[in-house]
Write a protein that binds this DNA or RNA. Structure first.
Length: 766
DNA sequence: GCAAGGTC
């Protein structure tokens, strides 16, 4: 029993700790469902177990399960139980702990890490625990030096710090569950359509709703700009120094003074400016850039995780924007040299000295995101390739030189009115050559001299108006959440995903749905901080008081329970109002056109998750349609050529948008979906959408006839009017990216063997 | 069917 067990937070950390402590002699062991690492040192055995984050999950006991019958005040005061989530870690942990004389917690050195460590300790049966030495290794980077010195100077486990994270867990659960149930019950939205409330998700939703309200309330104000186009070896534009002029008569006065006249240079300046290279990637910046190249944060995070486990990039969850001195740039560059980025690598290597850029945030938990290895040729495709390239190019850009540009400015006088001009010319692209995701706009500007006359060619008075604030896109939303300290680098994209899946927000740029607007409005009917980032800020203060041992975890949690009782009372007083607010918001709908029956009535689109109702606002009108659609529905300003009802645009992931009549039974829609006769019972074959949004061909006599055919998911599909000579199925034609394919929908049919390629012009499909 | 936080 002379051995040590080290508990690590994740497999990667366990590997690195084992490697550095054993000088590379550690071995991975797998036996009887156990998985751990092991090494020997002078007869002393050391085991390492890797957890994967939290090993237990807290929850309410089973008797609290029923939403409708459990009293919410009782739920607030309910005891909280723990469930083991990760059985295999648990088995390795308890087995090896029994064989060890000392235990070392070596999880990440932060609040959650301390909790993850103590959770693991708490799972070890008391009889094995009592006689053991329990210690904590404190390292803030997974480097040899850090790890070795951490294990030379072990400290004690900080139970107060773990408790502070434990309080966070419990408070989040209690508030989340109680309020989620309250709002769902109040609006009678139970089952799949429940309304969720949480410390992070609700303030995030409120942010989006607030912005939408600002946009809707925005009153544009007109303004004018007086512009003159000058010419000397090329065109360049001067803008009157007053910029946006809100007084129309003043703008007119200036325009009249200068119209038709040339200018005289008052001042001219040309200077060299640096184009600073970007900082190394932290999670937020990485997600922002990925979003810009068309990979949404959730998917980007998912891909980054997989690239990380494949050993291609470093750990993707980090706040750090400064490379640690231990990173061996040369060896990484050597690995990247044989890839399609060899040109860029050589550019970096051609410098006398490599000086990496630094960001503002320097933490010690993980390095910034950078490539650690080159992928095998052809191994990465699609978005994986895009994301890897983004990380690799960002890395190379941070190691290359700054760019340089010439910035020319001048002030030009026309009859006492002054015009500012500006031109930018890149003289040395520097890192921009490696990192093509950033573009610098160039504009022409000639060299000028003071007192020089410049010819003017065009005089304009442009009218414009002030613009409403921008909607958040997924990238700027994550950035804003980071600024407000909502969520963590690992959870922000998940929170946004949740808001989308629950039908509170949609699109990118992000808009709240009517349901999302209604939920926030109803949350605001009582005076609480549920929808404010302050909830998190205040929780942080409480957590600090626990870790500083000024308060106990129970004191803090119980105080929070008391507050929640009060909030719940206030909410119950407003229950009826809350119900009405949510109902009204859902039924509000967006106007998408006029009703041909009732000329004064709007046709509105009412969305509630995947249920869509499109109806005339006149009570009882026959134009009341229901759609169940997996996809986004957008209004168009067109009407159906068949029946005159408004048309909508249906956008499904991976498919080209379709124009539809709002009446599902309109011949316009039927015609488009008609793909010929079913060979089995001569019903009509029509395009249908599966529950998962995949399209396929099915017989109109379903469920009596269950004939289906798969369809290509991309591109436009039409019926040619021909019938397959082999199997009698209708012959279809698929058009995508100007490529046209004629095929039989029966995949293994003889017809497809010859893969007939049809020219666009040769035969126009009907 | 509830939260947010780890990690895969």
């Amino acid at each position: 029993m002379n051995s040590t067990l080290i508990i690590a937070e994740k497999a990667d950390a366990a590997r690195r700790i084992a490697y550095f402590l054993s000088d590379g002699k550690s071995k991975q062991k797998r036996e009887k469902g156990l998985s751990y690492m092991e090494f020997d040192e002078n007869g002393h055995k050391t085991y390492l177990v890797a957890l994967s984050g939290h090993i237990v999950e807290i929850n309410f006991p089973p008797e609290m399960k029923n939403w409708s019958s459990v009293d919410l005040n009782a739920l607030i005061d309910s005891k909280i139980i723990q469930n083991v989530k990760n059985k295999s870690s648990y088995n390795s942990l308890t087995k090896l702990a029994a064989e060890s004389s000392s235990l070392i917690v070596a999880t990440d050195y932060d609040r959650e890490g301390e909790l993850i460590g103590t959770e693991a300790l708490a799972l070890i049966p008391e009889k094995f625990l009592s006689d053991k030495i329990i210690k904590r290794a404190k390292f803030s980077a997974l480097t040899g030096d850090e790890i070795k010195s951490a294990f030379d100077q072990l400290i004690d486990v900080d139970y107060a710090l773990a408790d502070s994270a434990g309080a966070r867990e419990e408070i989040d659960l209690i508030w989340g569950a109680v309020l989620t149930r309250f709002f769902s019950l109040a609006s009678k939205r139970l089952g799949k359509s429940f309304l969720s409330i949480g410390r992070v998700q609700t303030p995030t939703l409120a942010l989006i709703v607030k912005r939408e309200k600002e946009i809707r309330a925005f009153q544009p104000v007109p303004y004018w700009r007086v512009k003159v186009q000058f010419n000397k070896d090329g065109h360049f534009t001067g803008i009157h120094e007053k910029g946006d002029i809100f007084d129309q008569s003043e703008a007119e006065r200036i325009f009249k003074v200068v119209n038709g006249k040339d200018g005289t240079v008052l001042e001219y300046e040309r200077k060299q400016e640096k184009i600073y290279k970007p900082a190394p990637f932290n999670t937020t910046e990485f997600l922002r850039e990925a979003s810009r190249i068309g990979v949404n944060p959730s998917r980007a995070m998912n891909i980054a995780e997989r690239l990380y486990t494949q050993g291609l990039i470093s750990y993707p969850r980090t706040d750090n924007t400064v490379y640690h001195k231990s990173i061996n740039f040369k060896s990484i560059l050597a690995k990247l040299k044989d890839t399609h980025l060899s040109k860029e690598v050589n550019m970096v290597l051609s410098q006398e000295k490599i000086r990496p850029s630094r960001g503002r945030m320097e933490t010690t938990d993980h390095p910034p995101i950078y490539p650690v290895n080159a992928p095998q040729k052809g191994k990465l495709t699609g978005d994986f390739q895009k994301v890897y390239d983004l990380v690799a190019r960002r890395f190379l850009a941070t190691l290359y030189k700054e760019g340089e540009r010439d910035v020319s400015t001048s002030r030009i006088d026309i009859s006492g009115e002054v015009f500012n001009t500006k031109g930018i010319k890149i003289t040395d692209p520097g890192w921009l050559e490696i990192y093509p995701y950033t573009r610098v706009q160039e504009s022409f500007h000639p060299e000028l001299a003071q007192g020089e006359k410049v010819k003017a060619e065009k005089w304009d008075m442009e009218e414009d108006q002030t613009k409403p604030p921008w909607r958040y896109d997924l990238a700027s939303l994550i950035k804003e959440m980071e600024k407000l300290n909502l969520g963590t680098k690992s959870t922000r994209h998940d929170i946004i995903d949740k808001l989308q899946k629950r039908g509170f927000i949609e699109g990118n740029p992000v808009r709240p749905t009517n349901l999302g607007m209604g939920l926030i409005e109803s949350v605001l009917t009582v005076d609480s901080k549920i929808s404010e980032p302050d909830m998190t800020a205040e929780l942080e203060v409480e957590m600090d008081s626990i870790s500083e041992k000024k308060m106990s975890k129970d004191e803090v949690v119980n105080r929070s329970r008391k507050m929640l009782h009060n909030v719940l009372e206030a909410l119950k007083d407003k229950e009826e109002l809350i119900n009405r607010t949510i109902k009204r918001s859902i039924n509000m709908g967006d106007a998408i056109g006029k009703c041909p029956e009732h000329k004064d009535s709007d046709i509105v689109l009412i969305k509630d998750r995947s249920n869509i109702r499109i109806t005339c606002t006149t009570e009882g009108c026959k134009n009341d349609f229901r759609w169940n659609i997996n996809g986004l529905i957008q209004p168009t300003d067109k009407t159906c050529p068949e029946c005159g009802l408004p048309q909508i645009k249906v956008i499904r992931r991976g498919q080209s948008p379709e124009i539809r009549c709002i009446d599902p039974k309109c011949s316009f829609n039927i015609e488009r979906d008609n793909m010929g006769k079913c060979p089995s019972d001569s019903g009509n074959l029509v395009v249908r959408q599966s529950r998962y949004g995949k399209r396929f061909l099915g017989c109109s006599n379903y469920p009596d006839c269950t004939v289906t055919y798969p369809l290509p998911q991309m591109g436009v599909i039409k019926f040619t009017g021909d019938v397959c000579p082999y199997c009698k199925s209708p012959i279809l034609v698929s058009m995508r990216n100007r490529r046209v394919w004629k095929f039989c929908p029966k995949m293994d049919c003889q017809f497809n063997k010859k893969k007939e390629k049809v020219d666009h012009e040769e035969k126009k499909p009907t």
